[in-house]
């Protein structure tokens, strides 16, 4: 009873970013695909049926990272497996987060660019990118623009990415001190975060950077928590009360909801625990490394 479907469709395979953005401008219906770990689930479940796709896996420009001195520029097509294996020393927070994504199969394919483009509040890369003040590089036929990570997330699965634009890279400042990433879920693998928290400590500038995942409509920072006063002149005065105060401020910055993975109350509680734990760990690590 079904008529033969017309076997006409487009699958674009650009070999350069310039060609990719031109194709995207000419074929706005083409859905970009890299690792496919989000898009193909939607396709398999018939939630979307793209008539055209634009394959990013042939773009060598997107598939490497480069050392830029104080920062690392990570091509949007670099998969999590490589971030974990190759960048743990310079970007420990992001590498730790990448290691918690899905499973080895997902980390082989899933890319940091895909995490950003999907812009799920639960995406694992977001908290460490926020904590370190990363910047998203976006290309179109108009040229290249850079969006500070704090301005990138606009809502659940909504970002500053406009039609016709491609994420080409993310530039992440190298760790200036200890970093932590903690994620709460029912097991260590294949978990969409119930909540997650990233922390970066810069002992030189005495600054903290925070990132909260899966506890608000967008990934969030906790500015009040970053402003907590730390006993830099007498590190031994750091105590559990201070860590707990930091945890309370992080929890207060979250805007969680009740959903299938957890309640808002649970998320706030877990964030307070994770944040206090993260602060204790980075403080201890900083002062083991640089004994005063």
């Amino acid at each position: 009873m079904t008529a033969a479907a017309p076997a006409r469709f487009d699958f674009h395979r650009p070999a350069a970013v310039a060609e990719a953005v031109r194709l995207l401008a000419e074929h706005p219906e083409a859905v970009p695909v890299a690792g496919g770990t989000d898009l193909m689930v939607a396709v398999n479940y018939r939630l979307t049926r793209p008539e055209a796709m634009l394959d990013l896996t042939g773009l060598d420009e997107l598939r490497d990272w480069t050392d830029e001195g104080d920062t690392v520029r990570i091509g949007s097509g670099v998969p999590y497996a490589r971030i974990t294996a190759e960048l743990a020393a310079v970007l420990p927070g992001l590498a730790a987060a990448a290691r918690t994504v899905g499973s080895p199969q997902i980390r082989s394919r899933g890319t940091i660019g895909g995490n950003l483009a999907t812009a799920s509040p639960a995406g694992d890369a977001h908290p460490p990118l926020l904590a370190t003040g990363a910047s998203v590089e976006i290309a179109s036929t108009e040229g290249v623009r850079h969006v500070p990570i704090g301005e990138f997330y606009l809502g659940p699965k909504r970002s500053a990415l406009r039609p016709g634009e491609l994420i080409t890279a993310v530039t992440v400042p190298k760790a200036a001190g200890p970093q932590q990433f903690l994620k709460v879920g029912t097991r260590n693998a294949m978990v969409i975060a119930v909540c997650s928290f990233a922390l970066a400590l810069d002992p030189e500038t005495r600054r903290l950077g925070t990132g909260i995942g899966s506890a608000g409509p967008v990934p969030l920072t906790a500015p009040d928590a970053e402003a907590v006063e730390l006993p830099w002149s007498d590190p031994g005065r750091f105590d559990d009360a201070l860590a707990d105060e930091f945890g309370r401020r992080v929890a207060a910055a979250a805007r969680p909801i009740d959903d299938v993975r957890g309640t808002a109350d649970y998320r706030r509680h877990a964030l307070a625990v994770c944040a206090a734990r993260a602060l204790r760990r980075v403080w201890t690590a900083a002062h083991e490394r640089n004994p005063r």
Binding site: G36, N44, M53, D55, Q105, R109
Partner: peptide, 25 residues
Amino acid sequence: QGECGSCTVLLDGAPVCSCLVATAQ
């Protein structure tokens, strides 16, 4: 949906869920 791994293959040597790879890729 990439959860179960029963479709795992090596693609250019890397383990992937073949259900999440577009054949055209």
